[in-house]
Design a binder for these strands. Structure first.
Lengths: 125, 125
DNA sequence: CAGTATCCGACACGATACTG
DNA sequence: CAGTATCGTGTCGGATACTG
């Protein structure tokens, strides 16, 4: 899967970390180890956040694992039992992401007000 | 400009903050006020970061301004002279973003190694 | 349970050209 | 200088269906 516009590797990492589901997964995993479906449900349970499709959750987990941020532990049993957790590196990243998410939450009202004011100013013109 | 998949307002804010050019603009503006073309050149001068098209820089600045993070000061002279700076809110956000960008830079090697190892493991199978 | 495969439409982004 | 307008393409993300 080629990326037409050349991106430096840091950019790619940031994109994985701050992607729509990446943020949520990282924050959930800060609480501890989770299984695949557990993660799906935990995310679906959050407010004003939709559902992750299996595809997107898989994709998200995949890139985070590849970047060495998430550890995937698949136990050889049937039915399958797979646990996801943060690596040390991933933990560091997740803390940053959580801080950013918190900041955004705390200032949500302020940003929304700014948007309304900006749009109101434009509407008159 | 409708977004088909419903996004909560925080998500939108995070997307503006962490967008490809958003990150770069915010970091540059932490150094102080900049003009439009100045910003373009400053970004183009950075390593392994491509060029911003005028359109994308304009769009980026626009959404940041709308969110109340960037202040646009257009002096009524000819030729036009416009200065962009961070608001207090934007300064707080930019500090977070810079921290994230720095973390990503510092751990770039580690992430790249993880990627190579992951891919190598997959290749053999 | 824990995924993968395939299809499809929306839209983000870049290139180019034009303007006050 | 500081943008906006338009157009074309490729990617992302969702829906759906299938598998070990």
């Amino acid at each position: 899967m080629p990326v037409s516009t050349p991106l430096c590797p840091q950019r790619l990492t940031i994109e994985h970390l701050t992607s729509r589901w990446g943020v949520l997964v990282l924050i959930r995993l800060l609480e501890g180890t989770h299984r695949f479906t557990e993660l799906r449900r935990a995310i679906a349970a959050m407010e004003s956040v939709g559902e992750v499709t299996e595809k997107m959750l898989g994709q998200t987990l995949h890139s985070l694992e590849r970047d060495g941020l998430v550890h995937r532990d698949a136990k050889p049993v049937v039915p399958p039992h797979v646990e996801y957790s943060l690596t040390d590196l991933g933990h560091e990243a997740a803390v940053q992401i959580r801080a950013l998410a918190r900041w955004t939450d705390e200032h949500r009202e302020r940003v929304e007000r700014a948007r309304r004011e900006y749009d109101a100013g434009r509407a008159g013109v």
